[in-house]
């Protein structure tokens, strides 16, 4: 791939993302003209903004996790972060706890506690001397299975109303968050992007292995801890507000590697932008694919992401 063509591909990719982000508010059922302005500015625009923020966070965190765990299948979903956040959020939704405690939304706090809890377990395993990356993934799978079992148990014992809201939430959705969602997710997205982008040089060195990176001046343990904590925070907030949205963190970095290139300084910002556009695109699709009713966006990301991943793996 020549330099010129790779630059042209990157520019085309960014332009495509912008078209998706700017065009998405206009996608959906036509409404009565007098309500059109309200629907656009009060429903669709904040929904697209929330989608862009969540997709951006999931994309860039997925890319950073793949690098620090040196495995293209390591994402917040596969190392247990999403499962921990989901378990925490489900507990807050199903158990009889107040919605707001000390001014903080309990679902978000519980999701964050769950995400950090699983990350601490994975972190403890990872920091034990000569742990292989495969071990971390296996611990992630064990945590995910354990958290899922507890989540299922919780739902089994819940009353019908709580069960319905939990089931709806657990499919992943972007609707009805409005500008409140933007105000919460915006700062988290900025924090995630700022911290992860500031670590690009360290992540580039880490590609060649822990010891070589350390010998070149990278504080590998600090770098891993920073990425895991910031990633857990970002994922927890996304899960608490929108439910577990699958495949974005896994699939987006793979698309970016093919379109933009695999260097970390391209991969991370590329995954931020592409993740935003990918989730907004999936959400627009969710609005139009079944006429008269909306699908949860998590269903669309999974339906697009799973086969795309299989194709990508076969092409490798």
């Amino acid at each position: 791939m020549s330099k010129l063509s790779s630059r042209r591909r990157a520019l085309t990719g960014v332009a495509l993302c912008l078209v998706v982000l700017l065009g998405a508010p206009f996608v959906g059922d036509t409404v009565r003209p007098e309500a059109a302005e309200f629907v656009l500015w009060e429903l669709r625009v904040p929904r697209v903004m929330v989608g862009a923020l969540v997709g951006g966070i999931l994309g860039i965190v997925g890319a950073a996790f793949q690098t620090i765990f040196n495995n293209p299948l390591a994402t917040p979903s596969t190392v247990g972060t999403v499962a921990g956040a989901t378990l925490g959020a489900l507990m807050a939704l199903v158990l009889p706890v107040p919605a707001v405690l000390a001014g903080l939304p309990v679902v978000t706090v519980a999701a964050f506690a769950g995400a950090v809890g699983t990350s601490l377990v994975v972190g403890a395993v990872a920091s034990r001397g000569q742990t292989r990356v495969e071990d971390i993934l296996l611990v992630g799978i064990a945590l995910t299975l354990g958290a899922s079992a507890i989540s299922t148990g919780l739902q089994y014992t819940a009353d019908m109303l709580a069960l319905f809201s939990a089931a709806q939430w657990s499919l992943g959705h972007l609707a009805q968050l409005g500008y409140d969602g933007v105000w919460v997710l915006g700062p988290v997205a900025v924090l995630c992007a700022a911290v992860l982008l500031s670590q690009v040089r360290g992540l580039e060195a880490l590609v060649a292995g822990d010891e070589l990176a350390e010998s070149r001046g990278v504080h590998v343990r600090q770098l891993r801890a920073a990425v895991v904590i910031v990633g857990a925070l970002g994922v927890a907030v996304c899960v608490a507000w929108c439910g577990p949205i699958a495949f974005v963190g896994l699939i987006v970095p793979h698309i970016v590697r093919r379109v933009f290139g695999s260097a970390q300084r391209v991969l991370l910002p590329g995954s931020l932008v592409t993740g935003a556009a990918f989730l907004v695109f999936c959400d627009a699709l969710a609005r139009v694919v079944a006429s008269g009713r909306e699908l949860p966006v998590g269903v669309v990301t999974a339906a697009l992401g799973a086969p795309a991943l299989v194709v990508l793996i076969r092409r490798r």
Binding site: E204, V207, S215, R216, R257
Partner: peptide, 28 residues
């Protein structure tokens, strides 16, 4: 210079060599 050459990545040669200058805090 380690005995195992682990550079089996998709990094280009110049990107890989540039990571050796991490300590200088320069852009890639």
């Amino acid at each position: 210079l380690p005995q195992e050459r682990s550079s089996d990545s998709a990094q280009t040669v110049e990107e890989f060599v540039a990571t050796a200058r991490f300590r200088f805090g320069e852009s890639t």
